[in-house]
């Protein structure tokens, strides 16, 4: 069986990620040789597997929240009954984006405390804008002719939404989710400053303790994870427009 290039790319990125996560201890001699001044050339406080899974859980949870909230809000403001709130929603989402995540974290800590929760809130807010913006753009991109014929043939508002509008908007919405997830994968590393366990932990510890080996180890895996997610979304995007390339 031949793999299509997109699936191939995804497999390759997954292999690279698995090799880095599981094989990092094997690279200890390499880091020792590169940084002979360091006592501990390999981050060993937790396994990289634990950190990666925690990192993915944080990104996944915050993205799910953003997709659920942003998607529903985007759908609501493109219905006739929700159109009034569109300006407000876009303003809130834009603010969420322009607010530096570090500031959200700093503000969240005094009220919520340290741990993964402030990180989850900050990342969810941060991912909201691309999801909201693309949901609105995607739904608005559905042509009037298609909408009119759906209505004229006797589809109700929900039938039109689920059978016609959302499938046609899917590629654009998916692009928004992809942006949100990729950005969050990077931003989640910063969440380690408020005590969330992520791949940012070796980076922060390394920066504090002038241990460049730690920083490189954390950054390499974050990068590989971003590649995996990007390739995964690429694959999903192709699937969502399969009808365009058929035949």
């Amino acid at each position: 069986m031949r793999l299509d290039p997109l699936t191939g790319r995804l497999m390759l990125a997954l292999l690279a990620l698995a090799a880095l996560v599981l094989g990092m201890p094997a690279l200890k001699p390499l880091f020792a040789a590169l940084y002979p001044a360091l006592d501990r050339p390999l981050y060993e406080a937790e396994t990289f597997l634990t950190l990666t899974l925690d990192h993915m859980a944080l990104v996944g949870a915050s993205s799910l929240i953003a997709v659920a909230a942003g998607g529903l809000a985007g759908i609501a403001v493109t219905r006739p009954w929700g159109a009034e709130f569109r300006g407000l929603l876009e303003a809130v989402a834009t603010m969420g984006q322009t607010f530096p995540p570090v500031a959200v974290l700093a503000l969240a800590v005094p009220s919520i405390g340290f741990g993964p929760l402030p990180a989850l809130i900050a990342l969810s807010l941060y991912a909201l804008l691309p999801v909201v913006r693309n949901t609105i753009a995607g739904l608005e991109g559905v042509s009037d002719a298609v909408r009119e014929s759906a209505r004229g043939l006797g589809m109700g508002p929900w039938e039109t939404l689920f059978r016609v509008e959302l499938p046609l908007a899917a590629p654009v919405i998916l692009a928004g989710v992809r942006t949100a997830v990729i950005v969050n994968t990077g931003t989640a590393a910063i969440a380690s400053t408020v005590g969330a366990k992520t791949l940012g932990l070796p980076i922060i510890v390394g920066l504090n303790g002038s241990n460049q080996a730690y920083v490189i180890q954390g950054a390499l895996i974050v990068g590989a994870l971003a590649l995996v997610l990007d390739a995964g979304f690429e694959r999903l995007a192709a699937w969502s427009v399969r009808w365009r390339t058929e035949g």
Partner: peptide, 23 residues
């Protein structure tokens, strides 16, 4: 009910409006 009414009346428009994601 408007949906039921429309389902028993065919409707054709100038811009056709076929659903592009369906066969």
């Amino acid at each position: 009910p408007p949906e039921a009414l429309r389902r028993r009346m065919g409707y054709v428009i100038q811009s056709v409006g076929l659903f592009p994601h369906w066969t």
